[in-house]
């Protein structure tokens, strides 16, 4: 199972849970699994073409998937995923 940290404003879709656990092998399948468990969340995370919205950062462990392989990034078992809105800093 993979633990996913959900940012506060999206917890409406997770019944207020800060963490959700899903089965997934990569970021793409993680989003699908999240949508099944928390209907409505995909639309907030992804554009219509399935790419991650530009205002969302997805971290596998401490690494931003933009520095890895984007939504094709593999996720090893036990890794923690953080979804973080990208509007901070400076």
């Amino acid at each position: 199972m993979i633990k996913v940290k959900i940012p506060t404003p999206l917890r409406r879709f997770t019944k207020d849970l800060a963490e959700v656990e899903v089965e997934a092998a990569d970021v793409k399948s993680l989003i699908e699994a999240l949508e099944k468990k928390c209907p409505g969340i995909r639309k907030r995370l992804c554009e219509d073409d399935g790419s991650i919205r530009k205002f969302i950062n997805v971290y596998v462990g401490d690494e931003d998937i933009r520095f890895l392989k984007g939504i094709e990034t593999k996720i090893a078992q036990g890794k923690e995923i953080s979804i973080v809105p990208s509007i901070a800093g400076g």
Binding site: P9, L10, R12, R44, L45, R53, F55, I56, P85, I87
Partner: peptide
């Protein structure tokens, strides 16, 4: 009403934009 505060930073209902 929806978030319990007016101190919100993102477009939580649509595109997650600023």
């Amino acid at each position: 009403e929806e978030q319990g505060t007016i101190l919100i930073n993102i477009c939580y209902d649509m595109c997650m934009g600023p």
